[in-house]
Each structure stands twice: as C-alpha cells, then as structure tokens.
C-alpha cells in the first residue's frame, strides 16, 4: 500500500479500527475506506484476526467473594471504624463479649447476603461489562434498508409516520431514505443516544424507533445526528461531550423549541437489555427545568423524568408519558 494512493498508512488504519486516531484523522480514514477496496480488505483482515481471537473464551466459575477477602475486608473496615470511634474508657467484659458475638453473627449474615447478592450479580455481569467499548460499525447498521424504514415508521401511528421523512443509518451517519410531507421525521436511534455513563452506550443490539414532530425535528434530532456523526468518526466520549457543550455554547446546537416531542410507540424496538421494547410512550423536551414542574416521578403521576439527558452535556429536560397502545393500535401495558 503506497502513500501515493492511500492517504494513511496501514498502521494508522489499525489505530483507526482501535479507536485510537484523533477525530480528524479518523474521519479521513473513514472517507478513504469507503472508496478503497484494498483498504477494505485490510480492515477485514484485521477484524478477522480479532474475531478469531475472540473464539478463545474463558469460562469463569461463579464463586463470590472468598472468605479470605471477606476477612481482609472486615479487617480494613473495622480498622477504619476504630480509627473514627474512640473506645470506651471502661469496658464491660460481659458486654464486650456480647458485642463480639453479635459482631460475628453480623459478619456471617453479611457474608451470606453478599454471596447471594454476588451470585445474582455474576449472572448479570456480562450485561454490565459486555459493552465496554464500541463494537464494529457493521453491528450497529441494519443490512436490510427496508426493514430499517419499517422499524422507523413503527414508532408512530401510520397516520403520522406514513407521510414522515424517514432516515436510515449509513456508514457516515443518517441519510434520508424517504422524503416526508408532514414535517415529522422518523428514524431508528442507536445505543449512543443513551446517557454517556450508561452501560448500554455501546450495546449494538439497541434499536430505538422514534418519530420527532416538526419542532423536535428542528431542535432535538440534531443532537442524535451529531452524536452519530461523532461516534462514526471515532471520537472518544470525552471528545463528544466537549463538542456537544461547545455546540450549545456557540449556538450551533439549538435549545428545544416549544412543543418539541417524539413518538416512541413501536413494539419492535429494543431499548436496552434490561427493558427490551419497554412500553409505548411519548417524550417531551424542554430547556433544563425542575421535574416538579411536571409532577414527574411523584406517586401515581403518569409522568416520569427520562434520564437520557440527565447529567449530560445537553441542557435539556425530557419527560416521558407512557400510553396504552402500540402504534398499530393494539393494547399495551402502561407503566
């Protein structure tokens, strides 16, 4: 591979695949990759090696914390406590013994509870650690364009989605598959629209169909578009957060327009490993506001605060109201 024909070297391609290239070089690599069959072969070779290596899985046993660790843990925690609490001046021997026994009993109870907890946690461990980094881009793409269009449309009743603009995800970001007539825009969001600290952020199985109304298409959809472009360009989470903050600071990213909302009524979506397709719901967007202004999360309130933007770089508050029917009109559970 000569530098005359290829703007970046093989080693840099590898770094790109590992997510180790700066954003500008990553973008250059991606652009070239789309046009260069030779480089696509190289990339396929690297991925093939990586996948072959993944064949070697190590089955882990399921023990909890060993007694040795428990003892060390107790010792450390007790040392901390005794450093904080001055011992009584006059000790009552009987009482001391009673407390020793009570303490021992408590330790046994904690150990049993801990073992049970960890056994349960271990079963779920794959879920929490399985998506530590981005998977290959192909895993986030849907090979069947028509299936992605149908899934996007399933976010809202046909009366809305039939005339909506439909976006599908390609190698470089979202592209228009079908032009719309009513100002709504439907698409299937991917895992990176989750909060940045979410364990699902890189889950390639996530498919979130949504139909934005015109106000949200103008002011919320750009966030999805921007996050997606940055992910595909190989930016780190920290770079993405900085870029989003800067986007709001310099007004490149708009504040939510009054009335901005989104339909999420698909029964075919996959929102996370924990909640699957969830329940049909509507989402409403506002500039940062207190959740009490909507009575969100109060007992028996149908309104909940969506954590999507909580603590994130986007100064947006998002409320969710679940509804009783999927987009096809069938009855659904309401949370």
């Amino acid at each position: 591979m000569s530098m005359n024909r290829h703007p970046i070297e093989q080693e840099e391609f590898m770094a790109y695949l590992d997510g180790e290239l700066p954003a500008d070089q990553a973008s250059e690599a991606l652009t070239h990759l789309e046009l260069c069959p030779e480089c696509q072969t190289l990339v396929a070779d690297f991925r093939s090696v990586s996948q072959d290596l993944m064949a070697w899985e190590v089955e882990s046993p399921e023990p909890g914390i060993s007694s040795q660790i428990n003892a060390a843990l107790e010792e450390r925690l007790q040392k901390r406590e005794s450093a904080k609490i001055r011992p009584p001046r006059f000790e009552n021997r009987v009482m001391t013994n009673r407390w020793v026994w009570a303490g021992a009993l408590a330790i046994v109870c904690v150990a049993v509870a801990l073992t049970l907890t960890l056994t349960s946690r271990n079963r779920n461990e794959d879920r929490s650690t399985a998506y530590a980094s981005m998977a290959s881009i192909e895993q986030y793409l849907m090979p069947d364009r028509n299936a992605e269009i149908a899934l996007a449309r399933s976010a809202a009743p046909e009366s809305i989605s039939d005339d909506a603009q439909i976006l599908v995800l390609g190698w470089r970001g979202y592209e228009t598959a079908i032009e719309g007539k009513n100002g709504f825009v439907c698409l299937v969001e991917r895992s990176w629209t989750s909060p940045f600290n979410s364990a699902q952020f890189w889950n390639p199985k996530v498919r979130v169909p949504g139909c934005f109304n015109p106000a949200a298409a103008r002011t919320i959809l750009p966030l999805t578009i921007k996050r997606t472009e940055m992910v595909l360009a190989g930016l780190s989470k920290a770079q993405m957060i900085d870029s989003i903050k800067a986007g709001f600071d310099n007004k490149e990213l708009p504040a939510p327009e009054p009335g901005a909302m989104c339909y999420m009524m698909s029964r075919a979506g996959y929102l996370s490993d924990a909640i699957g397709h969830y329940v049909p719901h509507l989402m409403f967007y506002f500039p940062l506001t207190d959740k009490s202004s909507w009575g969100a999360d109060l007992p028996d309130s149908p309104v909940t605060l969506n954590p999507q933007f909580q603590g994130g770089p986007e100064p947006i508050t998002e409320f969710v109201i679940s509804v009783g029917k999927w987009s096809d009109g069938t009855v659904a559970p309401v949370m």
Partner: peptide, 24 residues
C-alpha cells in the same frame, strides 16, 4: 472511604475479566 458496597460492585464488575486475564 469505607464503603463495602463499593468494593462489592468493583468485584462484580472485574471478577470475570480478571479471571479471563489469568485464565488465558
């Protein structure tokens, strides 16, 4: 700072990856 629960969470997150590290 003395939180046992924090240790348990770290243990739950890293026991399996560390087992893979040594196992291989």
């Amino acid at each position: 700072g003395g939180s046992r629960a924090a240790f348990e969470e770290l243990f739950a997150r890293y026991r399996k990856p560390l087992y893979g590290f040594f196992g291989r």
